[in-house]
Design a protein around this nucleic acid. Sequence first.
DNA 1: TATATTTGCTTAAACGTTTAAACAAATATA
DNA 2: TATATTTGTTTAAACGTTTAAGCAAATATA
Lengths: 341, 341
Amino acid sequence: MVKKKKTTIKDIANVLNISPAAVSKALHDDSRISKKTKKAVKQVAKNLNYQPNHLASALRRGKSNLVGVIVPRTNSHFFSSVIQNMEEILNNEGYNIIITQSSESFKKECNNIDTLLFTQVDGIIASMANETVDLQYFEKIKSKGIPLILFDRGENDLNVDYIGINDYDSSHMIVEHLVQQGCKRIAHIGGYKHTRIFNNRIRGYVDALKKHNLPLDNELLLESSLTTEDGREKMLQLLALENRPDAVYVAGDYAALGALQVLNERNIKLPQDIALVGFGNEPFAAMVTPSITSINQHSAEIGKQAAKVFLEHAKKDTVNQSLNKIILKAELVIRDSSRLK
Amino acid sequence: MVKKKKTTIKDIANVLNISPAAVSKALHDDSRISKKTKKAVKQVAKNLNYQPNHLASALRRGKSNLVGVIVPRTNSHFFSSVIQNMEEILNNEGYNIIITQSSESFKKECNNIDTLLFTQVDGIIASMANETVDLQYFEKIKSKGIPLILFDRGENDLNVDYIGINDYDSSHMIVEHLVQQGCKRIAHIGGYKHTRIFNNRIRGYVDALKKHNLPLDNELLLESSLTTEDGREKMLQLLALENRPDAVYVAGDYAALGALQVLNERNIKLPQDIALVGFGNEPFAAMVTPSITSINQHSAEIGKQAAKVFLEHAKKDTVNQSLNKIILKAELVIRDSSRLK
DNA sequence: TATATTTGCTTAAACGTTTAAACAAATATA
DNA sequence: TATATTTGTTTAAACGTTTAAGCAAATATA
């Protein structure tokens, strides 16, 4: 079996005895090409099973119509849903996306960025890895003049477009809810402080405690990688305290799941003994026993907005000066793990 | 802010007063270029922050070094893990991957295929959508002479490389295990019969019943889309039977989860009243209460093998005649939902 | 010393498209 | 009728690489 020669614009031109330029224009519905020619060109294109060579057109036009996406992982509902909604909008505008995963590793993230730049993407939409502190690679994207849009895990210092939720306020909502349930010693298993969103959640937690005149106890505030495994560990740590908390607010659902497992294994009653709240509203939060109260981050909306912000950039040829900082209002979904009354 | 002109091979050539061709060769370590020149070229490339234009080289060389991936969804552990492992191997060989999701929709799958062909990928690795019966779009890939590798959800008729597990035998393992636990009326919530893997699981189930002298009861064999929602529905259907099963083997973990939810809600004891077995060994199978017995599909290995098979094709320039059909041996992970003794 | 080979580069074409500029023919305007 | 405009096309260059072919200089071989 030999490789078939692909049909090009030239082949169509030869059949019709017109120039390749005319064919190109006909296929793009140029106003200066007669209806007759357009029809003929399209017919021949179909007959010869013509597929435009994207590489050639991208090279010539200086844009690839590809958008690079970097996420810590695809197998969480949050990221997968963001991507799916983003993709839909971008596809409609003729863009395709290249998804890459950092697996929370700084090094992989850097590789991903290089890969995407190498592939000549027209823009990058990203959510940063847990490990990432050094922003130099993201600066590299900016310095190439390629639109960069961050969502969820972003950084203020980078001064780029951002779509996320109001993390600070979300913490307030959670603490408020727990106080209403009668909780007095509320612990927080937070994410890494160096990540803005987790820092905001911590700040919100601290300030909300103050607001409700609850004392801030340092042993109740833990920093975690927020994996299921680390959630288990940190929960064990809290249970080992002399003065145990009566509520635990975990900054991520996967870690909350780990905490729940430990509580279940120890036969600690939820929410009577300890109330539990997660963050992210992953589908499993509703599936486990007891179901976990969590924060809905509006993943679909985040994906759509990110796509739209990119498209705004793409339409202008100079880099946009005005930054888009879109903060969506999150929603508390109350479930069995914290519903006392 | 104005868009910066990107550094090209020509710029480097101008700096050093040599030809662009020499630069290209120097960057590729051509043996006919002196060490001195190579060193100089690489230094200048670094200074000018040169990034090769992938589009141009892909156009010229007639290959994009991109591999397209089509999966029903990325937010299951199975697919995400397959992709991650595939990616690692392909990246090492200089390939990048473009991930697309069909969301189990035939139409989206066709679009994905068109998109990938349009992007001039060098090969496609795919797992088919649930809806897909018409194979014409996959034939299209083959007819373009582009390597196509299927995994998990594949089709025999297509006559392409395939990597999967021994579904038929897995069903035998499950039935055997349930029989050992003392179950006598084993139901099967299976996937769509038209999909080969699900068909094989059904055949395995039927044959294993025969082997153990259990009667085949048609009301115990249901066809399902295997979503969590449908799992709930089919479980309710089984519970409504006059003569209830004492074990349920579900062909997918998500549907098994739905079944579990229903059983928990009805306070039916697992595994005493009804034993439950899923398929796929999604992480949540170990997380829920009770944990669900399931089949480990070796996602990492599938991903690696798929990548390797693609690379084999890529190395030859004519299409390989000998087909790779790689069938991995799956593993039964026994958990609380079916452990009676 | 004359000839062959190797080394290190250049030239020029090619990949398949897009597009500015040119141009002839058809049509409109004065 | 002469001139201007519009219509429909062609020409040719460009996008940034790669690579076959060519060529001069350096080196090896006889």
